[in-house]
């Protein structure tokens, strides 16, 4: 399994861990790492509590990782990444939107899929390619709560996180996390923004 270049000391067993427990649609160059924290048991506990689960696919490609090279953030263009959502899953999501229920997205790729497929008050597109780049100022249409990991400085996932949580608050949280010795990036700790 190819690991990110900044992970230099990974053992064979941790290489095998570089997938979510629910990984299914192959082709991604990197894992949607916010999902690493879920075990089968934890998903079961959530279901037992009455939390509903919907599945989308965004095949993580270079778009997510390409560095922003322009000092003016809005001049950056993201490479396209493929996404798809089964009709049954679209039904669950649209039902939730209609009932004004809470939608909790796991990871930046999930958010980008949902926001890309949304049009005229609902999820309207079952597959396509997206180059949606979310940075502060973006108005979220679908997602109410967000689970993510800690991201690289000046990266597109960090800008998305700041768009969702507010830059000052997010950077304050990063500082607190550093002071408390949180673990960062793909194999690192998690963040819940509500």
């Amino acid at each position: 399994m190819p690991l990110p270049p900044y992970i230099k000391e990974a053992s064979e067993s941790s290489k095998k861990r570089y997938q979510t427990v629910y990984a299914e649609k192959t082709g991604a160059i990197a894992a949607p790492t916010a999902g690493f924290h879920f075990t089968e048991q934890l998903l079961k506990s959530l279901k037992e509590k009455g939390v509903l689960i919907a599945i989308v696919t965004l095949i993580v490609g270079r778009g997510t990782f390409n560095p922003i090279k322009t000092e003016n953030v809005e001049e950056h263009h993201m490479d396209e990444e493929y996404f798809e959502i089964d009709e049954k899953e679209i039904g669950k999501i649209n039902n939730q939107i209609k009932n004004k229920g809470r939608i909790v997205a796991v990871g930046t790729t999930t958010i980008r899929t949902l926001e890309s497929a949304y049009k005229n008050g609902k999820i309207n597109q079952s597959k396509g390619k997206t180059s949606l780049f979310i940075y502060p100022g973006y108005k979220f249409n679908v997602v109410d709560t967000f689970i993510t990991n800690f991201h690289w400085p000046k990266s597109t996932p960090l800008l998305l996180t700041c768009a969702f949580g507010g830059k000052e608050l997010i950077l304050r949280a990063y500082k607190e996390a550093i002071d408390r010795r949180y673990r960062f990036y793909s194999f690192g700790d998690a963040m819940l923004i509500r």
């Binding site: 629910y22 990984a23 299914e24 991604a28 934890l42 959530l46 509590k49 809470r102 909790v104 790729t109």
Partner: peptide
Amino acid sequence: IVDFLNKGDLLVINNAKVFPA
């Protein structure tokens, strides 16, 4: 996380799988 999610919430996950290209 179980304490922060409620009955009726919809958790959305990405099932993309990494493969060694």
